[in-house]
């Protein structure tokens, strides 16, 4: 039990997908202008990362490793992820049409969110067991959602202040993200990487 808790804390906070591993930065900069969109995106991505990581783990173990096709990993994983995104899209459309409307164009683009492929590659390269891998993927995506929501909150405040014209837009967002990354560095040392 303690071991599982350690895995979760390490994946979600210490080695945060966005702020420590630099994965999924496009969505981090692109859809964090409002808290509710960021939360929706976090929710959808959590679902995609967990489902596709489980599928990728199975593909790696029973298909690629079993038949010595390791070199096809990138191509197969991206196909699995694209299908998982399509599946998520259909599910969300059925379960919550409002969320579907809100996420709009961003939903199919989760395919090119490198956090999804990145987490899948990390867990097969770490040779994790299935349960370990699933927990790792789920906790990583929770960490992703957490940072997305925190950053969206910061940017909502940021939109109300006067920023020098040269810094307006992305530059000030980067600098704020840098400070957030410093804050998250405080977690290092809680759990082993």
């Amino acid at each position: 039990m303690k071991e599982f808790a350690m895995i979760m804390i390490s994946a979600a906070l210490v080695n945060n997908v966005i702020l420590a591993r630099f994965l999924g930065l496009c969505s981090f900069m692109g859809v964090t202008t409002r808290i509710d969109t960021a939360a929706g995106m976090g929710f959808a991505t959590t679902f995609v990362i967990t489902v596709s990581s489980m599928a990728d783990w199975a593909v790696q173990t029973y298909l690629l490793d079993a038949y010595g096709l390791g070199f096809l990993r990138t191509v197969t994983f991206i196909l699995v992820i694209a299908s998982a995104v399509q599946f998520t899209e259909m599910t969300i459309k059925k379960v919550s049409p409002e969320l579907f409307q809100m996420l709009g164009i961003y939903l199919p683009l989760i395919t090119t969110n490198c956090a999804v492929l990145g987490v899948a590659l990390l867990l097969v390269e770490g040779r994790m067991s299935f349960i370990h891998a699933t927990l790792f993927a789920f906790a990583s995506s929770l960490g992703y959602s957490l940072v997305m929501v925190i950053f969206a909150g910061l940017r909502e405040r940021l939109a109300l202040v006067q920023v020098p014209r040269l810094f307006a837009g992305p530059p000030i967002a980067f600098i704020v993200a840098g400070m957030l990354a410093m804050a998250f560095m405080g977690f290092s040392g809680i759990a082993a990487s």
Binding site: L19, A20, F22, F167, P170, P171, I172, A173, F174, I175, A177, G178, M179, A181, M182, M185
Partner: peptide, 10 residues
């Protein structure tokens, strides 16, 4: 470390 990446790019 990571914060430097964000700040320098900005």
């Amino acid at each position: 470390l990571p914060p430097g990446g964000f700040i320098v790019t900005g």
